[in-house]
Design a protein around this nucleic acid. Sequence first.
DNA 1: CTGTTAGCGCATTCAC
DNA 2: GTGAATGCGCTAACAG
Lengths: 345, 345
Amino acid sequence: MGIDGLRMTLVDVAREAGVSLATVDRVLNGRPGVRGPTVTRVKAAIEKLGYRPDPIASRLAHGGSFRFCFILPTGTNTFMTNLGDAVTEAASLIAGQRAFIDIRQTDVFDPDALATALEGIESHYHGVSVVALDHPRVRAAIDDLVGRGVAVATLVSDVPTSRRQWYVGIDHTAAGRTAGTLMGRFAGARSGPVGVIAGSLSLRDHVERQFGFGQVVGDEYPALRILPTRVGRDDRERTRVAAQAILAEHPDLVGIYNIGAGNQGIADALEEAGRTREVILIGHDLTVHTRRLLLLGVMDAIINQDPGHQARSAARLLLAHCTGEPIVAAQERIRIDIFLRDNLP
Amino acid sequence: MGIDGLRMTLVDVAREAGVSLATVDRVLNGRPGVRGPTVTRVKAAIEKLGYRPDPIASRLAHGGSFRFCFILPTGTNTFMTNLGDAVTEAASLIAGQRAFIDIRQTDVFDPDALATALEGIESHYHGVSVVALDHPRVRAAIDDLVGRGVAVATLVSDVPTSRRQWYVGIDHTAAGRTAGTLMGRFAGARSGPVGVIAGSLSLRDHVERQFGFGQVVGDEYPALRILPTRVGRDDRERTRVAAQAILAEHPDLVGIYNIGAGNQGIADALEEAGRTREVILIGHDLTVHTRRLLLLGVMDAIINQDPGHQARSAARLLLAHCTGEPIVAAQERIRIDIFLRDNLP
DNA sequence: CTGTTAGCGCATTCAC
DNA sequence: GTGAATGCGCTAACAG
């Protein structure tokens, strides 16, 4: 069940086909300047010998290096900080392959700033990965980049209608559905209102999560009544205020689904009200804070999108695109992780 | 925020240190034949120039290839079949790096057969990955391999007391705890008996899962009473029989935790009894079968250990060990996945 | 259109 | 102990 040991080289193929190294190289890399019949002969030789180019040698000979630019949101949001660290780590991971990553920051709530950042990507970059915002100017900027031959991978948050080659992130609707199912099942026989707090309703992923959550709870858990979504701007204070309002208005509150950041704010409100145990709290993204809240039993589940995986995946995709190496789809699929107290990494 | 662009080469270091290529190479790879002072000079030069060896060139020059042997269980268990496929895929993933994987099969329930297989590993192998069995003879065989300089990674199932370099797999106790928490929370206000079915109680991972499950349910969900574990040999028929017995004896059964394979057998029994909706079923490993059962609502949750991830991880670890490249710990940590209907990949 | 040639950065003989 | 030379398999200039 082995996989062949003795590798064929270009020289073998050239000899077999009765041509020179350069010619084989040309047909191999689809470069012009070879007559049809010759192409056929070479391809036949490749086939016959079962030749597989050696990516290592190729990479060495090619010499050049690749430069990628990652555009991440500014701000103190822990998840985004973790993502930044993860990108830095991914950078050192691919540095051995002579690929380099520059990181830039921009305000994620400002489409114009983001578009400007994208428009300003210098021509020496081979690829860009961006935590995007679904807005016409941003879409246009992405399409321009792709048009210029720059590979683009949206990260965490997508612009599906753009021409980006890949989206590296989770299906946010499914994530919302997952939260919905957990809420419904954890509620068990209880009935009553469920609060929802989002960071912003102009962020596509937050809207999608809200939608997915509503779908499941609305369809399958009639005992639960979803309250109008409140906005917390991913900020601890504002999120606390939103949670306080919900708690005050609904003494029979069953649970809260926090779509965005700011889980600590909700925990604060819950504690003030002395209702941490009775109210189910489900939120997103494993951070030092949410981990703590989960261990304390304040949060009941965390839906996670692994920032390390996402960063590595984006880096690998851009690199593979540049070197022409194959992509392992299964490896690049970002999971919707569910963390309970017991399966924390 | 870039990461340096212009790479230093051995030549640069040699010039800086006033020695030759060969000498630099010697100190770099810790080979003998260099005087102390010279070593110091070279190291200083390396430090000063911030030289980092180019793994690509190294790999090319070194020439040789690596051979690994994966020892997997025989049998028709879907998870193990998937694992086999995943190893084959991992093989093609590292083939570009001139590393090759041979797969061997052996009976996982027979320690002697497994030990014999391990003892028979030819000397041309640089690494071995094995779905192990915690048994003295197996441990001894693993220790022998390591003693001979062969790198060993246990896969899926560990032998913690052996000298293996890595264990690629999940913490099975934690997996059992996770199942316990899900069972407890899904049960909600219900109270009554919960059945447990294992594949075999001589498999360390099954015992650990059982232990973790018992811990959580026993400590935190007093309304649930765990029934004595039954054994199903990971076989559909025998597992069905076990489930039938449990169902017959306990009309008020709240749920079943299936530690091993054979979830279809339990589904069969549940359907015969017309109790698929009322009995919570939690099991392991996402396969075509368990996926279907989850979508049908027969299973309520699946605890998963990604076979693709495990196969790639083992392959990467062995390869990195051979080439001396660094290991990204976060990437190699195998998650305890929880799958609900909504977050299936 | 096709062939020849000179490296890419490092490991590894061999001389000195 | 140390240095010079050769080649890994491929790409990219050049010639022809």
